[in-house]
């Protein structure tokens, strides 16, 4: 399972790295970035889903 951010769609709304700072960080422009390669465990999956369902731009994708 992996999570990714589509950088074309992300506008830096900042929800993902506030909700799930263990999965997401921000770059120098304030856009969201995935920490590491985005691999999710059973425990982090639900947190990633929560971030996904709060992204106003629908920029977060999860491959299960």
């Amino acid at each position: 399972m992996r999570v990714s951010i589509d950088t074309e769609i992300c506008q830096g709304q900042g929800r993902c790295f506030s909700i799930a700072p263990s999965i997401f960080d921000f770059d120098e422009l304030g856009n969201g970035v995935v920490i590491g390669d985005g691999t999710l465990s059973d425990e982090t999956l639900s947190l990633a889903r929560l971030a996904q369902s709060n992204c106003p731009e629908h920029a977060i994708f999860i491959e299960e």
Binding site: G12, G14, F17, F26, D27, E28, L29, G30
Partner: peptide, 11 residues
């Protein structure tokens, strides 16, 4: 926009 963003980033 790009000019402004670094000053307003979370850091």
């Amino acid at each position: 926009r790009r000019l402004l963003l670094p000053a307003f980033a979370p850091g």
